[in-house]
Amino acid sequence: MANDPIIRVEELTAKYGDNVVFDRVSFEVMRGEVFIILGGSGCGKSTMLKHMIGLYTPFAGRVRIQGDDITRAEGEVRRRILRRLGVMYQSGALFGSMTLLENVRLPLEEFTDYPPEAMDAIAASKLRLVQLEGFEDYMPADISGGMKKRAAIARAMALEPEILFLDEPSAGLDPITSAELDATILRLSRTLGVTFVVVTHELPSIYTIADRVIMLDKETKGIIATGTPAELRDHCENDWVRRFFLRETAAGGEPEVRTT
């Protein structure tokens, strides 16, 4: 993980109507790291992610992916940038009318000239990568939430992206499935060198996968902390950030534990 920024967010400002979500936020994501965007509910984590993948046009500022500004790119340039990204949405967003294999095949069909049997082979290998071998012909409606998210990662990986964006990967999953998903993320990161940008607020998951964390804040509409999870827990001056990592309540002290 050399000091080589793959994404640069520069002075990014987002608004919904007159409501400022975040104001002049800048940060960098390094090649190969697992980068976590954190924050309380409603602080604009998902909005930040959607700006980084070019879905929303910012009020001001830029997002550069390997130097190319995705916020203003159009046509072929935009397609070229998007090909380098994979996105897993909160709900998985698999296409309901296609089987898992067809879902993973779709990006290949649209962007490559592989012969059909090669596409099938590649798509199947991506499903194997997320431990969904044997489920190729299942429809998204017939599999569990955790499997949907894994299939969505497989689809996002189809074109060998350099960066994967994950929106709340562990939301709504039980701890075991969530841990399995974390293991998948770590494996992909360590073996393939994929850069991950993850929006989450699952503490166990953050401790397991994060190389670096930034924390967005609703009040200041900017970043209140940057660092590794351990740094933020042990050394952060901001009370809220420390409490977040220690899982303390606002009144101080851990939540009461049931003893009976």
Partner: peptide
């Protein structure tokens, strides 16, 4: 509309479709 609600339309967009 259902695809839009399920973020499937967003998924298409970020796939460059």
């Amino acid at each position: 509309g259902t695809m839009k609600v399920n973020e499937e339309v967003d998924a298409l967009t970020t796939m460059g479709l």
